[in-house]
């Protein structure tokens, strides 16, 4: 595993909100690594700092201090964004949410294609690649449909297609299976695992759902802003032993 490149390297990343009486430590100094092709589940109760870590890794909020590399590129140094964060988000990050968060006025295929076109990929190539991605995720026949015309599971697959289409270094997934039944939840987690393996993306899944933890490589537990435990995920019965 150590020979693989690192999708994320976080060093002493910390964050607090408020001052004086309202001071809240959201994230203590945190060191954290995620390898390319690895799927990590981040576990923890509400208010433990999961979302804070996610927004820092997603380059939405600046931390108070610390350094962050994504895909070998320094994006935060001493708590400040370095370079064009928009471009890093376009190229190196993919997002999946609890609700699919597809753009309602775009069709499924356009939602996926958008990510490529935002980064300057030509329309023809972007269309072809997004169709292939939707085919791969089993929703190729739903490309012309608007999000409201898709089931929850189909929407989530389209969202995953959007997160993976540009082959990002890091995919951040926030409770991606929370609104799905067990079977569909497992399907989604399997998609993440295969995407990580086949496309070399590091996947960080924030979840409360313990039903599919056997499909991740590692688990991290966070409490009161600190990573308190790291574990190897349970292997599925009769699994490949990956």
């Amino acid at each position: 595993m150590s020979e693989r490149s690192k999708a994320v390297v976080a060093r002493k990343v910390s964050k607090h909100y408020g001052e004086g009486n309202t001071y809240v430590r959201a994230l203590g100094e945190t060191d954290f690594e995620l390898l390319s092709g690895e799927v990590i589940a981040l576990l923890g109760p509400s208010g433990s700092g999961k979302s804070t870590l996610l927004t820092i890794l997603g380059l939405i909020n600046e931390p108070d201090g610390g350094d962050l590399e994504i895909g070998g590129q320094v994006v935060i140094r001493d708590g400040e964004f370095v370079g064009n964060t928009n471009r890093v988000r376009r190229r190196e990050l993919g997002f999946v949410f609890q609700r699919s968060n597809l753009i309602p006025f775009l069709t499924a295929e356009e939602n996926v294609r958008l990510v490529l076109e935002l980064d300057g990929v030509g329309q023809r190539i972007a269309r072809q690649r997004s169709r292939e991605m939707l085919e791969t995720l089993g929703v190729g026949d739903r490309g012309a449909h608007y999000p409201v015309e898709l089931s929850g599971g189909q929407q989530q697959r389209v969202a995953i297609a959007r997160a993976l289409i540009h082959e990002p270094a890091l995919v951040l997934a926030d409770e991606p299976t929370a609104s799905l039944d067990k079977e569909r939840g497992r399907q989604v987690m399997e998609l993440f695992r295969s995407a990580a393996r086949e496309r070399g993306a590091g996947v960080l899944v924030v979840t409360h759902d313990h039903r599919s933890l056997d499909l991740v490589d590692r688990t991290l537990e966070i409490e009161d802003g600190f990573l308190i435990a790291e574990g190897i995920a349970q292997k599925p019965q009769g699994g490949s032993g990956e």
């Binding site: 939405i60 890093v88 980064d119």
Partner: peptide, 14 residues
């Protein structure tokens, strides 16, 4: 479409 605009920003739209 504020939510979509926020999403576009998150996806790195200029």
């Amino acid at each position: 479409k504020l939510h979509s605009i926020a999403l576009l920003k998150l996806l790195g739209a200029k």
